[in-house]
Design a protein around this nucleic acid. Structure first.
Length: 368
DNA sequence: TATTCGTGGGC
DNA sequence: TGCCCAAGAAT
């Protein structure tokens, strides 16, 4: 109610986007400026739903530059969904290591298996059926429907949100504005090249309608844009301030056995870095650790010595400071449950997230 | 609706 | 250095 009032107010002083004319201008721009991306079908080429799905999962909250090499690697290793479904989960996690948000990899694997077991290895074309699959939410279902099957759908991602918020001069800050933006976005979709239109909105957001510094002088939609008319393009979309990140602390135990192998442990399936391997550590908490508190959480009793310095890493919602203690196990001790001895020259075969690669790099550098 | 869940590049 | 953000989903 209040949102539509503010939108209506802005529209009274600014151009009211005409969907048909806007679509035509945007598609014309897209035909000349579309990015060439590894997962994107060429013009007049039929999109491969497997490629579209794989890329969309990888691109969730992830930049094109970061996702591209992973997409190529996955496609080379598992060219079809049946092969991905047949792969062991640990191999998928290892291939995903470094890309982040590891629930995506677990759901990717689950989704592949569900597609093979329940859909004959074919992707459903309906948004509702797509969204019922693991790891596919409202956005990804719409993206696959539009891009892979050319169905009218509005995959409203961060690019769409920014473009729509400016086109309609929506003053409501994000994320509360999401519903309002989705409604406005829905008024723009049509059966005319919906897949290209969806990707054109994304390319526009990535190339011209940038956060903070939009290149309005080059924008094909400048004449449609309420924010531009109101000189509000740099301020929109507004965002609610984010909460400060707390700091958590822990001690990682760099444990080497008599044969020079490194002790690794698999993390629980759910939660942070779920299912990934780690250098065993104490719990991560706000308080610093005393030696008396830390030692009972070591994987073995040993003559632990603290390596100089610490490893810093920032997750989505907290900072982490890890101290690293190095210890040697003289006898060929059997690893604790859920743990294993890893050959130091084969660590690339382990599902190690970036924070753990930092720990390993730090320990090797500091003489662990 | 609000949290949780990674990482790296840009400024 | 610190904060911003990137083709969001699950709970």
């Amino acid at each position: 109610m209040e949102e539509s009032i503010s939108t209506a107010h802005a529209s009274s002083e600014a151009p009211q986007p005409d969907p048909a004319a806007l679509r035509q201008r945007l598609l014309q721009w897209y035909d000349r400026h579309a990015r060439r991306l590894p997962w994107r079908a060429l013009p007049e080429e039929v999109a491969d739903p497997y490629h579209v799905w794989l890329s969309e999962i990888m691109l969730q909250q992830t930049t094109v530059v970061a996702a591209a090499p992973y997409f190529e690697a996955f496609l080379a290793r598992w060219p079809r969904v049946e092969e991905l479904a047949a792969a062991p989960l640990d191999e998928v996690l290892t291939a995903w290591a470094g890309l982040g948000y590891y629930a995506r990899a677990r759901n990717l694997h689950k989704c592949a298996q569900s597609l093979v077991a329940e859909h004959g290895g074919r992707f459903p074309q309906e948004e509702a059926a797509l969204q019922a699959l693991p790891g596919i939410g409202a956005y990804t279902a719409a993206a696959i429907a539009a891009i892979a099957f050319d169905r009218p759908a509005a995959p409203v991602d961060g690019n769409w949100e920014r473009v729509i918020a400016r086109l309609f001069a929506i003053e409501t800050p994000l994320p509360p504005a999401k519903a309002e933006i989705r409604e406005a976005a829905a008024t723009l979709v049509s059966p005319q090249r919906p897949g290209d239109f969806a990707q054109a909105m994304m390319d526009l957001g990535a190339i011209l309608c940038l956060p903070g510094r939009p290149k309005c002088l080059l924008c094909p939609l400048a004449e449609d844009c309420a924010a531009y008319a109101l000189n509000r393009e740099k301020e929109l979309p507004a965002r609610t301030p984010k909460a400060a990140k707390p700091t958590r602390r822990g001690i990682a135990f760099w444990t080497i056995d008599a044969q020079g192998r490194l002790l690794l442990r698999r993390r629980p399936e759910k939660g942070l870095l779920g299912g990934m391997m780690e250098v065993p550590s104490t719990e991560w908490r706000g308080d610093h650790w005393s030696e008396a508190e830390a030692l009972p959480q070591a994987p073995f009793p040993a003559d632990w010595r603290a390596l100089p310095g610490q490893v810093r890493h920032t997750f989505t919602h907290f900072h982490l400071e890890l101290e690293v203690w190095a210890g040697r196990i003289e006898s060929g001790a059997s690893p604790p449950p859920g743990s294993l001895w890893a050959e130091p020259d084969e660590l690339d075969k382990q599902a190690l997230p970036s924070v753990m690669r930092k720990v390993i790099s730090h320990a090797l550098k500091r003489g662990g």
